[in-house]
């Protein structure tokens, strides 16, 4: 892991405020906590702020959430910099999180990484059209379907360089892609159908 910093001032928006819908949602979240413990809602609120801001946390959003919860700004910054899933730098419209932990590596994450580098560029960089960015992350917990990536909210599993490249093409063209295993397999069941418990009970 390396030092994570806020995005440079020229990339920061002037201000940030929750949309009416998010504001209502945030107030609902606050109600979950006993009086005086509202600051516990900081992670869900930062998360929602990140979604609203387009997948990353601008500095005004961190301040906004801190003020919203009545805590010092530094307290929100501590949380935002602690958790790597809060992106402090702008990301592409499709943010690819490539699992690079051992099972995915053994099953071909290297190839996916090559695709990323060729199609998108260096980790953390955003493509010129603003559509893609990628980072390598630790285990995303879908080892049985390795190798896999997460793009925005969805998992894409059982990838090869070709299928991954196709997914990126489809997304770039604005078409929908089916998330989950990209081969003939039901969720994380064995490839090619069940191998046990085949008889009816």
């Amino acid at each position: 892991m390396s030092v994570r910093r806020l995005a440079p001032p020229e990339l920061q928006p002037k201000s940030f405020a929750f949309t009416a819908e998010n504001l209502a949602w945030a107030k609902q979240q606050l109600a979950k906590y006993p009086p005086g413990r509202q600051q516990s809602a900081i992670i869900p609120l930062l998360w929602r702020a990140q979604q609203q801001a387009g997948g990353w946390l601008p500095e005004p959003a961190i301040r906004y959430v801190a003020d919203f919860l009545g805590v010092a700004h530094i307290r929100a910054l501590e949380v935002a910099t602690f958790y790597t899933m809060f992106n402090l730098q702008p990301v592409g419209r499709f943010h690819v999180q490539l699992c690079g932990t051992t099972p995915c590596r053994l099953r071909g994450a290297d190839e996916l990484e090559r695709v990323c580098r060729a199609r998108i560029g260096a980790p953390g960089a955003v493509t010129h059209d603003g559509k893609f960015s990628w980072v390598e992350v630790e285990c995303l917990g879908a080892c049985v379907n390795a190798p896999m990536v997460q793009i925005n909210e969805d998992y894409y599993e059982d990838l090869t360089a070709e299928s991954f490249g196709r997914i990126l093409d489809e997304l770039a063209a604005g078409r929908k892609v089916k998330p989950g295993p990209q081969i003939d397999r039901q969720l994380s069941a064995p490839v090619g159908g069940p191998t046990t418990l085949k008889e009816k009970a």
């Binding site: 892991m1 030092v3 806020l6 805590v71 010092a72 530094i74 307290r75 910054l77 910099t81």
Partner: peptide
């Protein structure tokens, strides 16, 4: 006056004030 804090984590933790 809660101004100091620790940003980052692990080896990369750093003591600072907000910005």
């Amino acid at each position: 006056v809660p101004e100091l804090g620790a940003i980052g984590r692990g080896e990369d933790m750093e003591i600072t004030t907000y910005l």
